[in-house]
């Protein structure tokens, strides 16, 4: 990792209003959790349904998308990435630094609020909060890596990313069981299933498979993004 790359990326990503907008969405999640706790009281099934539907299925992938593409996409698009590439720093290291910012951002704005929301709604009971927190954490890293790779590979990363998150994981995932095997959402839910001590969540993927797939995706996507950045052609305008 490179401290300067991290700092520049962090400022580009979260400088100005954007951080507040992202924070606002985290706060909304927490506010809803508080509201549910006040109105419903403690109901673990509600906690699981709420965190599963709002946090793991929507908030985490969408944040992963915005943040993962945001750490490098605009720079490649407007050409300012040359200032990073024209330095004696290995390209994989640049990717690693960018991923660190993206993953940290997604974890802070999506995974941590998920964990806190779980605590608010169910306390520490049955390790529900922990289960969803860990799932959101791992999913944050995985989505960041995937969408970071996507933005190195294509200029339309946001659109393809949306298509994956909404259509593959969301729509197809709910109708076609096969699609679920290749879904970050399902892999991370299998972690939740394993951690919580009560039967609230069920994932279609076995824990071992999910763990391996998650590791492969995170490491693989990061490695490949580094390789792609090494051969990224910055053509002139002609």
């Amino acid at each position: 990792m490179n401290g300067t790359v991290v700092r520049l990326t962090y400022r580009a990503l979260l400088g100005g209003r954007r951080a507040w907008l992202l924070l606002l969405m985290s706060v909304v999640l927490l506010a809803m959790a508080v509201l549910l706790r006040l109105t419903v009281g403690v109901d673990h099934q509600v906690t699981a349904d709420f965190l599963g539907a709002v946090s793991v299925a929507a908030l985490v992938p969408l944040f992963g998308l915005i943040v993962g593409t945001g750490v490098i996409g605009p720079e490649i698009d407007d050409g300012s990435i040359v200032y990073l590439l024209s330095k004696p720093i290995s390209r994989p290291r640049i990717i690693l630094s960018k991923l660190a910012v993206a993953a940290t951002g997604t974890v802070l704005f999506a995974a941590v609020p998920t964990f806190v929301a779980g605590l608010v709604m169910s306390g520490t009971a049955d390790r529900i909060a922990l289960g969803f927190g860990v799932a959101a954490l791992v999913a944050s890293v995985a989505y960041s890596a995937i969408f970071l790779l996507l933005s190195v590979v294509t200029r339309h990363a946001v659109v393809y990313g949306l298509a994956y998150a909404l259509i593959w994981e969301g729509l197809l995932g709910s109708f076609v069981p096969g699609a679920r095997t290749l879904s970050v959402q399902q892999w991370s839910l299998s972690l939740t299933e394993a951690i919580t001590t009560r039967d609230l969540v069920s994932s279609d993927v076995r824990l071992a498979v999910a763990g391996v797939l998650l590791a492969v995706v995170i490491v693989g996507a990061t490695w490949y993004a580094g390789q792609r950045l090494r051969v990224l052609s910055l053509a002139g305008e002609e």
């Binding site: 909304v28 549910l36 109105t39 419903v40 998308l65 915005i66 946001v158 990313g161 949306l162």
Partner: peptide
């Protein structure tokens, strides 16, 4: 595109889920 989908989908999903539970 992403922002509009996020705002619409997230707000609808969250509000519907909350409304249902409550």
């Amino acid at each position: 595109v992403a922002a509009i989908i996020t705002v619409l989908a997230l707000s609808f999903a969250a509000v519907s889920a909350l409304q249902g539970i409550i």
